[in-house]
Design a binder for these strands. Structure first.
Length: 368
DNA sequence: AAGGTTGCCAACCGCCACAAC
DNA sequence: CGTTGTGGCGGTTGGCAACCT
């Protein structure tokens, strides 16, 4: 050999196109628990029929917890323009100067807004002087122009009203907003001294940390369905009631759930979550074993190895609880997103907040 | 109303740099 | 030092909805 390179994946064997919520959850769950030391083997280990590169891209650009959502501020746009002057199309370098922004996002913003704006400015400056009015982001500082994927339209909401968490919660509850949409709002408000905690702000929480918060969120999401008598749900509901905000809508997304929980409340569930996570992992590996999905014999994290060390697990499986059942369905029927569509866990939707509200989420939303 | 065009962005593709062996 | 594998980067495309004619 020696010539050329092996393709990173067999094209015919991998799924392409928009990511489903189930796939997102698998990827998040896997990366949260195992990291992403090897993107090539990750899809197989995580039970994803995706190219490793595709997984990497999805994680880096959308699922990574510290990805900043929301419109680019005028400051950010100006920064991009300046950096682009200095660096050219070095999007990753530019992105490194803009925390939470991805190179892909910056590249898109440049190509769709800034480039045009600059060329416009050039012609304008010849006659009227410079014009630095932001097209895509100026809304975030005064009003919010928002379109939620065709389901509900927020229109122009004065920031004072929109900053009210009760209002936001109500709005979110009554809509079918997905994670990105909610996150965009949340990040907008958080930058305006809102008391709503965004998911990236959670990263800074001393206790619980983000990983733990994710664990909580996962436990909740893996349960799939909401139950009135579910302990977790009650805890969340109690929390929101204490805060005098509307009851938690079970259809809300993973981040919203995290964002609305008191840190102390989160902490309360961490230990339980850790246990549950362990059981879930064993369940995944058990299924992998039975479905013969894991053929990494030499892999130290091999499911078969894990299982062989835990004889009691088979006993647990005799009476799988609700979460196991839900997860079983997800794993066994990856084409069916068991309730995750309703959860809006991490829609791949873009639904950006451009002034023309032209972009609808459906082009890249989850396929249900 | 219908067909064409435009705007947008998530995802893909191919190449490159670098580390491991 | 050459080969190979992998992650990362930048350019490009696919596909959808809104807009236009």
């Amino acid at each position: 050999m020696g010539t050329g390179r092996k393709p990173c994946c067999v094209q015919s064997e991998v799924k392409r196109g928009a990511w489903s919520p189930g796939e997102d959850l698998r990827l998040i769950a896997y990366v949260q628990r195992n990291g992403h030391s090897n993107w090539r083997t990750l899809p197989k280990n995580a039970g994803l029929q995706r190219c490793g590169k595709s997984c990497r891209l999805r994680w880096i650009n959308y699922l990574r917890p510290d990805v900043k959502r929301g419109n680019f501020t005028k400051e950010e746009e100006d920064k991009i323009i300046k950096l682009h002057e200095a660096l050219g199309n070095k999007w990753s370098k530019i992105a490194s100067h803009l925390p939470g922004r991805t190179d892909n996002e910056i590249k898109n913003v440049w190509n769709t807004h800034l480039k045009k704006r600059l060329s416009k400015d050039d012609t304008n400056s010849a006659t009227n002087g410079p014009n630095l009015t932001s097209s895509a982001s100026s809304s975030s500082t005064t009003t919010i122009e928002y379109s939620s994927g065709g389901n509900i339209e927020m229109g122009n909401i004065e920031i004072q009203e929109a900053q009210n968490p009760q209002f936001l919660n109500q709005f979110v509850s009554s809509s079918n907003m997905g994670m990105r949409e909610i996150s965009k709002l949340s990040s907008t408000f958080s930058s305006n001294n809102s008391n709503i905690l965004t998911h990236h702000e959670l990263l800074d929480l001393p206790n619980p940390g983000f990983d733990e918060a994710m664990d909580i969120a996962f436990d909740f999401n893996f349960l799939g369905d909401y139950h009135e008598d579910d302990e977790m749900s009650n805890a969340i509901t109690t929390t929101t009631k204490q805060d005098n905000v509307p009851s938690l809508d079970p259809n809300r997304d993973i981040w919203k759930i995290i964002e609305e929980m008191e840190p102390s409340e989160l902490q309360h569930h961490i230990d339980e979550a850790a246990e549950e996570n362990e059981r879930e992992m064993k369940w995944i590996t058990y299924l992998e074993n039975h479905l013969d999905l894991d053929d990494d014999v030499g892999d130290e994290t091999s499911t078969k190895n894990l299982l062989s060390n835990d004889a009691s697990f088979d006993d647990q499986l005799l009476q799988p609880d609700q979460s196991f059942h839900q997860y079983e369905q997800l794993v066994l029927n990856p084409q069916v997103d068991q309730g995750f569509g309703r959860l809006h866990a991490c829609p791949s939707s873009s639904t950006t907040t451009n002034n023309n509200n032209k972009k609808n989420s459906s082009s890249s939303n989850y396929i249900f």
